[in-house]
């Protein structure tokens, strides 16, 4: 059997694929890789279809020993990559000999690196996905030192990619927002505050949501909103008034008003925004 042994799990390293959409009506978050383009690219570089499971690191990287020779690829947040201590390429297929340790270093920019292996991480799927969901706990547990990760059978040659764009993490996170469904729960002043900048990424965020430090959005009405379905990218405003942008592990229903929805294409950058990054919302009417 082909497998990896976790030598250093890192701060939070989880198995992720494209998630388990289609079960929101049962209270099951969609989950899946937060930086989808980086996850897809890592798979292509390793010769995999894009739906194979990769590892998503958080800030501090991870290290794995290949118990059989395997091709790997690291994308997402740029970081030093080493095989048995020797520098190896980021953003390109890397051959890891049997018994060698692949070290994925701390991110030098951004937050989350993606590590793909030829054949994909082949833990048992739950509801069609191998993603770990931090909200519901569904899927394989986060990596722990000493754990074994089975690998699937390689399905193709490592990807030939001429040039891998190394997206510089944004100095400012720009989030286009389509207003609604509950923008009428906020004062006109609150919507000006949303558009006016002054927000930074909070250290309290996680895979559930990107939290903000900054001004509070003032509500135009009191009372509770009956629970309603929420989508990926929803800008939900809890009672403290600081907006939260929902990421892949967001709850499927919620009772705080959603002022607007961030376009899906902007969420990969949101997944790489380190705490303290300035955030500018660009609200547009629906």
């Amino acid at each position: 059997m082909r497998f990896l042994t976790v030598v250093r799990a890192g701060a939070l390293t989880t198995v992720q694929d494209l998630g388990r959409p289609g079960h929101a009506h049962l209270g099951v978050p969609r989950s899946g890789a937060l930086d989808r383009p980086a996850h897809r690219l890592a798979n292509r570089l390793a010769g995999n279809p894009e739906d194979r499971a990769t590892l998503e690191t958080t800030a501090t990287g991870c290290a794995l020993r290949a118990e059989t020779a395997v091709t790997a690829a690291v994308t997402g947040a740029p970081c030093p990559v080493r095989v048995d201590g020797r520098p190896a390429a980021w953003g390109a297929p890397v051959r890891v000999p049997a018994g060698a340790v692949l070290e994925v270093g701390a991110a030098t920019a951004g937050l989350r690196s993606y590590v793909a292996f030829a054949g994909g991480v082949a833990v048992p799927p739950v509801l069609g996905s191998r993603s770990h969901d931090v909200l519901s706990g569904l899927g394989p547990a986060p990596l722990a030192d000493g754990a074994r990760l089975p690998l699937g059978a390689p399905c193709g040659p490592a990807g030939a990619v001429d040039a891998v764009p190394c997206a510089a993490p944004p100095a400012e996170l720009v989030l286009p927002v389509v207003l609604g469904p509950r923008d009428d729960w906020f004062t006109p002043g609150a919507l000006r505050v949303l558009a006016g900048g002054g927000f930074t990424v909070s250290a309290a965020g996680n895979r559930v949501g990107l939290r903000m430090d900054g001004p509070a959005l003032e509500r135009a009405r009191d009372g509770e909103l009956p629970s309603e379905g929420v989508v990926l990218g929803a800008v939900q405003v809890p009672p403290d008034g600081r907006p939260v942008v929902f990421l892949a592990d967001h709850p499927t229903t919620g009772g705080y008003p959603v002022a607007g929805v961030v376009a899906g294409a902007a969420l990969a950058a949101a997944a790489q925004a380190v705490p303290g990054t300035p955030v500018r919302f660009l609200p547009t009417a629906a």
Binding site: V178, G180, P181, R182, V231, A234, A263, G264
Partner: peptide, 9 residues
């Protein structure tokens, strides 16, 4: 009610 570009409430 509008919910982003791909959803409806």
């Amino acid at each position: 009610l509008p919910v982003g570009r791909h959803a409806l409430l």
